[in-house]
Every structure is written in C-alpha cells, then in structure tokens.
Design a protein around this nucleic acid. Structure first.
Lengths: 261, 261
DNA sequence: CTCCTTCGTTGCGTACAGTGCAACAACTAT
DNA sequence: ATAGTTGTTGCACTGTACGCAACGAAGGAG
C-alpha cells in the first residue's frame, strides 16, 4: 500500500464533502501542512483538484471527465438509457438504473420526477441492499451461496417501520422476488416513498442491472404504483432485449451475478 | 510533487480509456509491475479502481460518487437545471451548460436531443474555446487583459472551413459576442452542426456559466436556429434570475470572470 | 498430458522520495 | 502597530516505495 497515494485519496474523499483549506485537511489527516500542500499540488497538476479563491480547494474537472467516461463505457447503461428515459416520460416519476459491483449496489443512471416532490439520490450513490427494490433484485440474482453470504454479512438498519430487520426475513423476501420477477419497497427505505423494481437481463438471462420506479405516497398510493408495474416490466424487457436477452431461451432463469469477461 | 501519487493519477487517466491489465499499465507508465500492483491495490481499497475478471482493472464507483457530489455542489448547475431541461423539452434539441474554470471551458450539464442524430459531447469534456458558442460566451466575459492573454495563448486548430484561425479574429468575434449578448457557432466546430449560446448571470451581472443549443444542419438551417434564439435567451434570463441576477441593475454589464468567494 | 508462455504476486535490500521541522511571507483582524 | 492566521519554501533525515528476482497460477499449443 502506498502511503502518499492513500493520503491523497483521503483528501479527495474529504473534498467530496465540500471545499477545504490546507489547514483543514492537515488537521483531519493528521499530517503536516507541507505534506498536504505537496499532495494537493500534484492533484492540481492533474486537474483532480482546483483552487477556489486563495485558500480553498475543491474537486477538479478531471474527475467529471473520468467518471462520465467510465459511465459511458458501461454498455448496460448505454443500452438501457432510452428505455429509462421513456419510462420517465410516460410515468413522469423518478426512475433509476442500478448495478451490483463488488459487493455494493450503486445507481448508474437516473431521470428525475416531473413533480415537485423528489426523492433524494444521486448517480454513484450506494443503495441500501436490504430495503430498496433495486437492492433486492440484484442481490436476489446472485448464486445461492453468495446471496446467503451477503444476507448474513450486511447490517440491517431500521429506517422505517417496514424495514426488513434480519437475514432470514431478507432471504425469504429475495426468494419471493426471484419468483415474481420484480421487487417492491413498500415504505421500507423512506417513510413516504414506495418503489418497484425489475431486472434487466443479458444474453444468458443473467441479471445485468435493475431498473426502478419511485413515487412519493402523496402522489400515488401503493396500489396505484402497482398499476404501473406493466409499464416497468415492459420497459425492463425492452431494455433486456437490447442487451441481448432472448426471452424464449430462459423461461426460468439460471442464477447468475455478473457477466464474465 | 509526489511521484507515487503522480503515477497513480496517470493510471486513472489511462483506465479512463478503458480496462487495462497490470502489464499494460506497467508498460505505458514504464515502471515495474510490482509498483503498479501496489498503487492499484491502494486505489482499489478506496474504490477508485475495481477488478474486472482476474486481470483487468477499471475505474471504480468512488469516482462516480465524488464527481456527482462535486457537480451537485455547484449551485449554478442546480439552479439552471430546470431551465435547461425545459429548453430541451420545448425545442427537442441538445442543450449544454458550460463553465469556465481555471483556463478551460467544460460542460457541466447536458440534455440530449430527442432526434436520432446527436452531437457527441459529455459532461466533464473540455469545449474548444475558439469555435464553440459556450467558449465565446465565457472567454468573452473575462476582463479585457485576461481575455487578450487567453486569446493569445490558445491554439487555433482549424476544424472546419469556418473555424476562426487567429487571435485577432477571435478577439473581434468576442467583442461582437459581448455586444449582442449571445454567441453563435456557424459550423465552426463540426461541419454539420451549428450552435447558439447565451450567458447565465449572477447577482452582480457576472457571467456564471453559458447555456447553448446545438442542432445538426439537416434538421434545421442556420436561420431556423436563429429563430430559436428568443427561446434560448428567455431560458438563460430565467436561469439568471434564479441565480440572483436582477436585470434592471446592470443594463450594460461589468466585466467579470468568476464569483469571488 | 506435459511443456511453455504469460501474467499476477511476494519478500527483500537499497536508494531516494516524501516527510516533518522551522523559518518566512502574505493577509486579517484587533 | 501588533498579534494571530494560513500558505510557502529549503533542508536534513528516515521510512517508504521502488526494482529485482523468484514463485505460482492459469491458459494454450503441441
């Protein structure tokens, strides 16, 4: 492990919270100012950091460049984008695309609701595994032993009265999700929002990503949201088709986590 | 300057081009494999890099997280977003929001055209200063000496027959832009696309960002695009109002580059 | 099935890069 | 003026990150 690189990455994380001064950083990292200064200079040279005024530093443009490049490279995202966009246009509600990567579920695309009340989320943000529709879809698609391992290892913070609270209940829920072909989050993550999710599949029926529709309760009750399920499933199937999925091949799908290279 | 950090950042840039193996990286960096390995491990630990299969590495999710956070923090972007979105909805064409930061113009937001033919761009991408509408708006808004310095220092690659080719012509064009309150790119950047741009202003009339509308010639000729100018200007003014601009204060605006802190 | 190549991984000794220190410079506030 | 911040520079020392070389695992060719 490289010490200086390690420190630099902590600096970046810290700057992700907002602009900081040299001293701020030196204090939180518990290293000498001059050390921080040198690291910042290198980061600056590569445009990962830029100065704001005389003393403040903030994240730079190289970061945007890199991350949008990386997002573009994910073919799933590119293929699903039009369908996501259309689902958003048809329903007017917030839609998300999420992917399972290295033990975590993160949002890789998003279109916001047309309405005033919006759900807080962000591309790049981690989604909770135990109380979101996308989390259930993606973890549910893992091979059994891995699924069990995940279920046992994650924490179960109780975010609302409906949040699933332990591994057994979670595994049962995942089983349910696998059977239905879709997942719901009925006020499990936030008190006034419910959500439905569906898988996007690839050529061998493997789950590549999860698509979801989130609606605040004041706009639509849970039954109303379920009424949109056909729209969601249609969109997810169309997206899957664009990713190479052929429905006839796999009526009941094999367990699969990610695309082998 | 920190050597190891420097190398790590080069690795990230390299991975921005696509997934690489350890050897690939060692070769392009011209350092020993074991060195690359250690850097990669540190990057991995912080989720800046993730493995893809056994041997390939690609950019990780921390990058998305950071960059979207940073984008969110830019208040301009947040304030302008709805107007950008509406302009996109009304016209159906590609709209961009760009900002001048540390000598470069980069796209900080974008909504794609509804049509099949799309312009290639990406959030985080640098825009050419001499042949894009946003570049002209933003450089044109700099104080005179800085504007001249920029004009003299940048290269003038000839991308089409219409591209401005030298500093004098550029400065004259910028003067024009300042007078009109909008900028055009009449096939200066790409042969089949033209573009119009307008400034988004802050409380003191200073230019915070530039908004633009890009349309392929086959969809709309240049006069047709100019017909959309009122739409663009209305959107830009509404966005400016949301950023604290009060039109009556500054009929002719003072020169100003960036917001002081 | 075996050999051979290719690529990732590990342990180690050394050199130099990165560190902390202390003094200095630029600003603000009082 | 004076004192208190905070950024910047030069320097000497030490520990970290480097390259090396040997090992191990995986995959392909014959």
């Amino acid at each position: 492990m490289s010490q200086s690189l390690d420190r630099a990455l902590v600096i970046l994380r810290e700057l992700g919270e907002g602009p900081r001064t040299l001293d701020d950083l030196a204090t939180t990292l518990d290293v000498h100012k001059s050390t921080v200064l040198r690291l910042l200079r290198t980061l600056e040279k590569h445009r990962f950091v830029q100065r704001e005024g005389a003393r403040h530093h903030r994240l730079g443009t190289a970061l945007f460049d890199l991350s949008f490049r990386a997002l573009e490279e994910r073919d799933v995202r590119r293929a699903v984008e039009p369908h996501l966009r259309e689902l958003n246009a048809r329903t007017g509600h917030t839609v998300h695309l999420a992917s399972y990567e290295a033990g975590e579920v993160i949002y890789i695309d998003k279109y916001d609701s047309r309405h005033q009340v919006r759900m807080y989320s962000r591309i790049g943000k981690q989604a909770a595994l135990h109380c979101t529709a996308v989390g259930k879809i993606l973890v549910g698609a893992l091979p059994e032993h891995e699924r069990r391992a995940v279920a046992r290892s994650i924490p179960y913070p109780r975010l609302t009265a409906n949040t699933i609270a332990d591994a057994d209940a979670y595994l049962a829920e995942l089983e349910q999700v696998r059977q239905c072909g879709y997942a719901v989050d009925r006020r499990e993550h936030e008190d006034f929002i419910h959500c439905i999710g569906a898988p996007v599949r690839g050529p061998r029926g493997e789950v590549l990503a999860a698509m979801s529709l989130s609606v605040p309760e004041m706009l639509l009750d849970f039954e109303g949201l379920l009424g949109l399920l056909p729209e969601l499933l249609t969109a997810a199937r169309a997206a899957s088709a664009d990713c190479g999925w052929r429905p006839e091949d796999s009526p009941e799908n094999p367990e699969r986590g990610r695309t082998p290279r």
